[in-house]
Design a protein around this nucleic acid. Structure first.
Lengths: 108, 108
DNA sequence: CAGTATCCCCCGAGATACTG
DNA sequence: CAGTATCTCGGGGGATACTG
């Protein structure tokens, strides 16, 4: 169980899950992630993207155009992680709602 | 993804995973959990056990002997949750170590 | 045995302003 | 556009002492 604590800590932190999803759903640039995740601040976005990069879940590529572009892309690891999380998502969907777990209110 | 945030938040909090494991590994009474999870304080143990009970992951039974006994038992939900976490554990075992994720140092 | 009750501290995250 | 730099606040969790 200790071996997942790191993943868990990371995934559970605010914004991380949403960012990962945003990535798989087509977000690539900084502002695309920001648009995809309503409410996140530039600071948190930067922090999370860096963390995900460090964990090997996102790749970061700087395109030296003017203005500069930075492209983020989910790695294979991220895809595998998302797969690994699936059963947990199913479990959550089936059991947590009725247990009174607070589901984050949709923005819209 | 929002549907798992609750699970994730819970599982990621300190002690929770270890307590769940302790339960499946035979811990039943308050002090058995305390022994099984080195370093946890009475306060945190109480808090976590209550949370897990609220989430429907542990049942709590008071046996009115002298002194009183309180028995905790993982529910079916907990067993299902543990199953659902498996793939994630595998993913973590395979990928996190080398990513520099801090694995909690084993007590012994 | 199985908890409560306090007090305290640190860190995660928000707000705001600024920059190459 | 894609970030940094500060400041602040709240609450999660530790330490310690006490109790039915």
């Amino acid at each position: 169980m200790q071996s997942v604590q790191g993943v868990l800590d990371t995934l559970a932190r605010r914004w991380t899950g949403e960012l990962l999803m945003a990535g798989t759903e087509g977000a690539r640039r900084f502002r695309e992630y920001r648009r995809a995740v309503p409410g996140i601040s530039d600071r948190m976005l930067t922090l999370r993207l860096r963390e995900l990069e460090t964990l090997g879940l996102l790749s970061r590529t700087v395109v030296p155009s003017t203005p500069v572009q930075v492209l983020y892309a989910p790695t294979k690891h991220a895809a595998e992680l998302l797969e690994a999380v699936r059963p947990l998502v199913r479990w959550g969907t089936q059991h947590m709602a009725k247990a009174g777990a607070q589901v984050v209110a949709p923005a819209s």
